[in-house]
Design a protein around this nucleic acid. Sequence first.
DNA 1: TTTATATTTGCAAACGGTTGCATATTTTAC
DNA 2: GTAAAATATGCAACCGTTTGCAAATATAAA
Lengths: 352, 352
Amino acid sequence: MQTVAYFTEWSEMRTKKISIYDIAQQLGVSTSTVSRALQNNPAISEKVRERVRETAEALGYKPNLFAVNLQRGTTRTIGVVVPMVSRNFFSMAIDGIEEAASQRGYDVMIFQSRNEREREERIINSLSNGKVDGVIASLASDGGDYAYYKVLSRYGTPLVLFDRYVSGLEAGTVLLDDYRGAFDTVEHLIDQGCRRIYHYAGSQQVSIWQNRRKGYEEALRKHGIEPEPDWITIGATTEEGGYQAMERLFASGKVLPEAIFFAGDYAALGAFRSMRRHGIRVPEDVALAGFANEPFCELITPSFTSVEQFGYRMGNTAAQMLLDKLDGAPYMDVVISPRLIVRDSSLWAKGK
Amino acid sequence: MQTVAYFTEWSEMRTKKISIYDIAQQLGVSTSTVSRALQNNPAISEKVRERVRETAEALGYKPNLFAVNLQRGTTRTIGVVVPMVSRNFFSMAIDGIEEAASQRGYDVMIFQSRNEREREERIINSLSNGKVDGVIASLASDGGDYAYYKVLSRYGTPLVLFDRYVSGLEAGTVLLDDYRGAFDTVEHLIDQGCRRIYHYAGSQQVSIWQNRRKGYEEALRKHGIEPEPDWITIGATTEEGGYQAMERLFASGKVLPEAIFFAGDYAALGAFRSMRRHGIRVPEDVALAGFANEPFCELITPSFTSVEQFGYRMGNTAAQMLLDKLDGAPYMDVVISPRLIVRDSSLWAKGK
DNA sequence: TTTATATTTGCAAACGGTTGCATATTTTAC
DNA sequence: GTAAAATATGCAACCGTTTGCAAATATAAA
């Protein structure tokens, strides 16, 4: 008969889920004994514990995590919210997070905000229902009001922000010293003899772009150079953004700067392409430095000077901090020092 | 008093989790009514449903997912197991998976096998306890016995394999036509006039490296070239692996090939570095082609010929397939066609 | 008004574990 | 041999929802 055939097939396919009840029954003990035995509770005699373990193994028992979580109110899972997993910096950070988490018996859930506020808000909201024990996030870049992050602290879900952050949130932070990275880079360009140094910056709503800009400005001032307003362009730190900005500069007919410091490598790449199209040489005509040390920086010709952000380290540190917090430790604010990596694209002096 | 102070502070920090019980109490109805109302069950009068919704909103109610999951036996979460999230191909795939999943209301958990069998086995085992509704995986590369994947089907957890797979598993697959990608690449090299074409291959335990090798061999044979055994080197498809292999070739003093087809871009990169160290020009002396179309391929000089794998598409398709399977659809086997992208590194003819 | 029929709601049993407390059993001490 | 202490196990409540079934209330038909 049809039904029987179906049933047979089905029951062959998957073995019934077995619970502590099944073990208890088989051994003629209570479920509490089984539960305790499985947790190695010394209240249960070694003999019984051993037999329970054996039958559990034999039956292929796996605890139902939802029952456990429901009871314990904890998930041993952390949520990670990043703009985009496929950006090298973030995938490195996730690598570091995953490593720390798995080492300490936690799982990792990944969510992408795709730099959209609304999406990030949905994610954070869905994360506040106990799905995860804690959250690590790098904010979406379009700035504004991040009040929705407060639902996390309201529901007692710890939060660690890395890379991009905003003040006023109850959270631990793992930040890069963006100011310093920018400062060092610009000072290096000045060392090369450049004085008219432009800056391509990201949205000033976001901490990291703000700080890089400040570092840029103050490095100039330290060396007696007052940056003029039109030396700074604000735009998306994407290849497209950099390309368009450069094209506009060419179209304007203005004299080119001696160097440009880009707040991101991809923007630098876009601008570089535009320069090449116009026959401008790097670094001989214009020196160029980026930020993030994307893998392509050392491979492109000329290789790009950039700032290493230590993504793996940042992610790993953020995860450690979150897990420590879950163990009762207080929040911390960690600042990681970036490293300027000088390559060909900024060696203006040499080009002379 | 200390204790009181603590308590006050604490109670200010986090509001008590509120449950349907609280709503029920406030409204003087039963929890079943609330539960049904929240699910828009028509058995509950519109009036009551409305009031329940309102108070739920007012109280900031969020359902406890563990209770729901425990009851329903489903998690709306899928697990993803990849060798390494920071490899471009995989982070693109994860991007695609996350997109498909979030669109259909699923969450994504990420696990890294780091190409270690033992680690992968632990992950798969932990995934079979109902933590996720289904699994998408790309196998760890050190080959061998993948029997541990069978626990998934035994527990009724659907599985979709992408990129790297192994036969004999009950699973859907999303694969690249690696054979075709290799075949096209090698034929292109032959077009360029190369005949002594070497191949740097990955572990022959793994489907993708096997197929790329086959594609290589058959393309040669099609054009009347019989590949000699020492034309093929097997090793890790990493920068280091490629570099070392190339150094060994130099050390051997043998005559260089006209072209080398690498099973991976990073291996090609390593070999390229070795060549540069020895003053060998690409493509004039030796043409070179890789596989994966890593972002650096188009940026390096000379730009690298490679094969695009459509990571985002593969991940997205795998996720769609898994979610369809969860909705009762059957497994499928999808094969995606790669695209050869010819760049400077393989233009041997031009170099002549 | 009474009875039959819808329409609403509540009771209580799951789901699969954990754990405080009581009970039963064994061991030790007197 | 009995009381006290230590050890080993079980009972039952609980975590927060869902849902089959019964009960209560409202509506319609007779």
